[in-house]
Amino acid sequence: MAVDTQTIADAMLAMVTEAAGVKRYKPGDLSKAMVAKFADDGVSKDDCKDAIRVLVDSEKLVYTYFNGTWLEIPHQEGSAKG
């Protein structure tokens, strides 16, 4: 592939950041969007998985669970506010 993992990760992070508070994305939503966006570069689902792992391991994104799993910017949830 012509793009590296970090580039995919950055594009995913931008997508999540832009929609924060309005729309949540599942890991699969991000992967599908990236496969489409980088179609010419032949980015695969596995490349997207690696990008997600980079984002989560560096704690730029966290997995959340609200009726299914989402990837979100770390934040304090409503339930934790007492």
């Binding site: 609200f66 009726n67 409503g78 506010k81």
Partner: peptide
């Protein structure tokens, strides 16, 4: 609104 992301709750 302080506790709830309204669009995602509607989508839930």
């Amino acid at each position: 609104a302080n506790y709830c992301e309204v669009p995602t709750t509607i989508a839930a």
